[in-house]
Structure formats: C-alpha cells, structure tokens
Simulated assay, not measured.
Amino acid sequence: MDTPAIGQPRTPYRRRLMGRRLPVLLGAALVLALLGPFGTFADLTLVQRLAYWVGLIGLGGLAFELLTLAAARRLRDRPEAWRALLAGVTLAVAAPMTLTVALLEKSLRGKDMLHPLGLAELFVYVVLVTLLVSAIPVWLELRDRGLLVAPPSPAPVPSIPAERPEPVFLARLPARLGRDLLALEMEDHYVRAHTAVGSGLILMRLRDAIAELAGLEGLQVHRSHWVAATAVAGVERKPDGKLVLVLRNGLRVPVSRSHAAAVRESGWVEKAGP
C-alpha cells in the first residue's frame, strides 16, 4: 500500500473521531463542569453544569466536524492549506456559539447579553474556551495528516563543494520506491511517480510536484509528463515527426509539439536511434 501523501489522514475518520476527538471533548466538558468558570459554579448545580458544558462542547464539536469535513473536499490537493483551515474553522465555530451561549444564558440564568457590547464580551470568552478545547484535536489532526514534521533534508556534509539539498518532492516517495526518480505522470488529481523500481500515486498537482523538484535536472515534455535527464535511454521519432522518449525502465513518454524545442535543446535527441 502506498504511503499517504502529506495532507492526507493516516488514520480512518471513525477511529480519529471516536478514539481521539470525542474523548478529548468529553474530558474538557467534565473539567469545565467541575471548575464552573464564568460564574456557572455559583449559579448552577453539578448536574446543571454537566448538562450546560457537555451540551455546549458537544454542539461546538459538531460544528467543528461539519465545517472541517466540508472544507476537506476542497483541499484534497492543497495540503499546505490545512493549518490555516483548522485555525479558521476554530474561530468560525466561535461566532454561532456566541449567539447560542447568549440565548442559553438569558433563558437559564436570566443574563441579557443580546446587545452589541454583551455579545462582544461573550465572544471573547467563547473564543478562549474554543481555542483551549480545540487545541488538542487540532494538534492530533495536523499530526495525523503529517503536517507537523517538515520534510527531511540531508545532513550537511563537510565537503567542498557542498552537496545540493535533496528536492522536497523526493521525501514524498514511499520508501519502497527508492529515490531514483525517472518520470512523473499526471492521473486526474494524482501524480504517478515512476522510479527505477516501480511506481506509486501521490495526491497533488503535477505543476506543484515539478516545483518541488527544483535542483533535479529534468524537463516537462508534455502537459501530463515530466522526465528526469538521467532517465532518458533513447529517443524515437514517429512518422509524423513527433518524439517519444524511451526511459531506462522501458517506459515510453510522448513529447508534445509545444515542448519539442526544449527537448532538442537539451541534447536528448542525440540519443535517438538511426
């Protein structure tokens, strides 16, 4: 099985929800019920505080899940946006929860905060509680999606000249594929990486993958293909004049007319057969 791409969860959704986030939310609600912040300790019984905080934390947690699931559909190929997304969702949940708390406070404790100054003050409290309660779930989600660890870079070598850093994209390759990258091929929302020992799919756009290959000599030879310079074993010419690159692993990659000039300038055509 291919290693999940950065930004994609390693753990099934049900396991993340039931085994991680729900216990954290219930634990937070229990702690708040026991401590009774914002005057709830003096005004409410323990049972009332439990109902108060479990209800609010549960409602906020549900809103967090729904917003996150909706946004996830739009970020399948943008893993770099997940940190900002989760921060934005956390703050977005605070807005409707402020109105909910204001209505609850008026009906339960007779406190009228349904005016601009009261809502502004209440919003600060709600944001504070939301950030405290969501800190661990957000951290767990980022960790599960591989967004808390920077891509590994090679250790500095005390030699002259110094070795170039490994391209960032190579860190995305599953270990079973090695690091001898031959070509990239676009498949819908995925990129198929071809190496000397096999191939695998990675969820990202081809242009983003090419950008992460800075420092590795190669060319985009077609709107759907990129080829490493060291991968070219030969070049074939079709009867219509189009070029086809033959790679070391036997893979044949078409060269589009718009990229043919760059391929010729690279000197690869000199590898063409008679």
Rank of each mutant, 00 (worst) to 15 (best):
residue 37 P to D: 03
residue 182 L to Y: 10
residue 234 G to L: 06
residue 173 L to F: 00
residue 114 L to Y: 04
residue 177 L to D: 08
residue 227 V to F: 02
residue 31 V to T: 04
residue 117 L to V: 09
residue 192 R to I: 10
residue 108 L to E: 06
residue 214 A to N: 14
residue 145 R to L: 08
residue 103 L to H: 11
residue 64 F to M: 11
residue 19 G to M: 07
residue 201 L to W: 05
residue 249 N to T: 12
residue 89 V to N: 14
residue 247 L to T: 05
residue 232 V to W: 00
residue 61 G to P: 05
residue 77 D to M: 09
residue 18 M to K: 09
residue 132 L to H: 06
residue 1 M to H: 06
residue 76 R to Y: 00
residue 256 S to N: 07
residue 250 G to F: 00
residue 59 L to M: 11
residue 165 P to Y: 05
residue 70 A to M: 10
residue 79 P to V: 04
residue 3 T to W: 05
residue 153 S to P: 03
residue 148 L to M: 12
residue 231 A to P: 08
residue 160 I to T: 11
residue 81 A to H: 09
residue 193 A to E: 12
residue 39 G to R: 14
residue 235 V to F: 04
residue 201 L to H: 11
residue 145 R to V: 08
residue 18 M to R: 13
residue 13 Y to K: 15
residue 149 V to K: 15
residue 214 A to V: 11
residue 13 Y to M: 15
residue 65 E to D: 13
residue 162 A to T: 10
residue 266 S to N: 06
residue 23 P to E: 13
residue 41 F to I: 00
residue 117 L to D: 12
residue 62 L to V: 14
residue 37 P to A: 06
residue 156 P to T: 03
residue 259 H to V: 03
residue 32 L to K: 05
residue 239 P to A: 04
residue 20 R to P: 12
residue 22 L to I: 14
residue 204 M to C: 07
residue 5 A to L: 12
residue 225 H to Y: 10
residue 226 W to Y: 03
residue 10 R to I: 00
residue 215 G to Y: 00
residue 124 V to P: 09
residue 260 A to F: 00
residue 29 A to Y: 05
residue 49 R to P: 01
residue 247 L to H: 02
residue 143 R to L: 14
residue 85 L to H: 12
residue 150 A to Q: 07
residue 43 D to M: 08
residue 8 Q to A: 12
residue 251 L to K: 14
residue 16 R to H: 07
residue 106 K to I: 01
residue 95 A to I: 02
residue 183 A to H: 03
residue 268 W to V: 00
residue 36 G to T: 02
residue 272 A to S: 10
residue 143 R to C: 13
residue 154 P to S: 15
residue 216 L to H: 06
residue 266 S to F: 01
residue 260 A to G: 08
residue 138 V to S: 13
residue 3 T to I: 06
residue 53 W to V: 02
residue 178 G to T: 12
residue 263 V to R: 03
residue 76 R to T: 10
residue 73 R to T: 03
residue 110 G to L: 08
residue 19 G to Q: 05
residue 136 I to W: 12
residue 142 L to D: 03
residue 127 V to K: 09
residue 231 A to V: 01
residue 42 A to I: 04
residue 225 H to S: 09
residue 121 E to T: 05
residue 174 P to G: 12
residue 256 S to C: 08
residue 149 V to L: 15
residue 26 L to D: 02
residue 6 I to C: 13
residue 18 M to A: 13
residue 273 G to M: 15
residue 121 E to H: 07
residue 119 L to H: 04
residue 192 R to P: 14
residue 131 L to F: 02
residue 218 G to P: 06
residue 185 E to W: 01
residue 213 L to V: 01
residue 231 A to M: 02
residue 15 R to D: 14
residue 194 H to E: 13
residue 3 T to P: 07
residue 18 M to Y: 01
residue 61 G to M: 03
residue 189 H to V: 13
residue 44 L to I: 07
residue 100 T to M: 11
residue 91 L to Y: 01
residue 62 L to M: 14
residue 249 N to Q: 13
